[in-house]
Amino acid sequence: MAWILLGLLAAVVAFAPLPALSSPPQARTLRQGSAQAFEIDARQFAYSPSELKVNTGDTVTIQLVSADVVHGLYVDGYDVSVEADPGQSATLTFVADKPGSFRFRCNITCGAMHPFMIGKLTVGSNDWLYRSIGFSILAIIGILLFPRSTPITNYQLPPTDH
């Protein structure tokens, strides 16, 4: 019975709509109705700003400015990208219609740390993070409420000396 209850709670954590969390647009953002525009400076091996927050359904425009070598910007989950030559800028526009947290990363080999040149785009609230923490809480509640039915007995801790 208790396991069924935990299963139902897990389903609630997985599928229940979460209360809307405010995600104010950050600095260097021009609010244009449902449009969000960002200017991102790219240099080896970081973006600035490296964390973007938009609302679900916003039309996002990113102006990528490369400060040193050729850099790209690829958004995981949206499969859209843009490239900027050194000292030049390039623009990417897409509709942020998938809520969640997405990494954006350089997709043009730009040096040693290229695979780790990464930023983060949050569309709406990062529901999956909160749901995952909810799963974690449910997991430990389940473990603590239902300890092992067959405790180990007659076992002594081994000595530290080996």
Binding site: F45, A46, Y47, S48, S50, E51, R103, A112, M113, F116, M117, I118, G119, K120
Partner: peptide
């Protein structure tokens, strides 16, 4: 945090 996070200063320091 360092390799997969968005914090460029951390990557610079580690590299």
């Amino acid at each position: 945090g360092v390799l997969l996070g968005p914090w460029g200063a951390l990557k610079d320091a580690a590299y």
